[in-house]
């Protein structure tokens, strides 16, 4: 019996969005997946990945003025094993890129990535040999937040966009929730001579 080979999914960003949340009276009928999606969306534990000055804005997002705890995301984890969403805050150098990928791989499965700021999203002003031109070259990014750096409310808007995305997602299986490529890419390619 040959093993079924699943197609490579580079990005989750292109997944079609299905359905919404129906409301009615005092009785709420819902599916388990909607309930799970709601639970996931409202308890996003971020992984601190502060690389540069965007991290200062990320810290002030958690502080009392903007208070990310209102969205259930106040528990910043220093270990990837306990985190749901990785906030890449700052310019990603080429030396840091394998570290980022490894930490992303260590996160448990329903996982999301927010690329915060111009440098993490596209390289920004640093169009040079040292900076990765966009973190999506290394990990699949769900939400891009532009700004240099984005103000705390702009980051909160990005987190709300991510919550919307998680809530709208209707997963058919746990495999659908995987946001990384289902078959890992390899650099070796067959060269036909």
């Amino acid at each position: 019996m040959p093993k079924k080979i699943e197609t490579v999914v580079f990005h989750d960003s292109s997944t079609p969005v299905l359905g919404g949340i129906e409301k009615g009276g005092n009785v709420v009928i819902t599916t388990a997946e909607t309930l799970i999606a709601q639970a996931r969306a409202h308890a996003l534990w971020p992984l601190t990945f502060g690389l540069a000055c965007c991290a200062i804005e990320m810290m002030s997002t958690v502080a009392s003025r903007f208070d990310l705890a209102r969205f259930g995301s106040e528990a910043f984890r220093a270990t990837p094993r306990q985190a749901d969403v990785m906030i890449i805050a700052g310019r990603l150098s080429k030396k840091m890129a394998p570290v980022l990928r490894q930490i992303y791989d260590q996160m448990p499965e329903p996982k999301w990535v927010i690329s915060m700021g111009a440098c993490a999203s596209s390289g920004g002003v640093y169009n040079n040999y040292a900076i990765v031109q966009g973190a999506d070259q290394v990990v699949p990014v769900d939400v891009y937040v532009p700004g240099c750096p984005p103000s705390p409310d702009a980051l909160i808007y990005g987190i709300m966009k991510l919550q919307e995305k998680i809530k709208r997602k209707k997963a058919k299986s746990f495999g659908d929730l995987r946001l990384i490529e289902l078959t890992p890419r390899t650099l070796e390619t067959e060269v036909k001579v």
Binding site: S13, S14, S121, S122, G134, D136, D142, V143, Y144, V145, P146, G147, P150, S151, D153, A154, Y157, G158, K161, K165
Partner: peptide, 12 residues
């Protein structure tokens, strides 16, 4: 208008 975050790179 600071609410510019989006899902796709092309939309920017």
């Amino acid at each position: 208008n600071f609410e510019l975050a989006d899902y796709k790179r092309e939309d920017f």
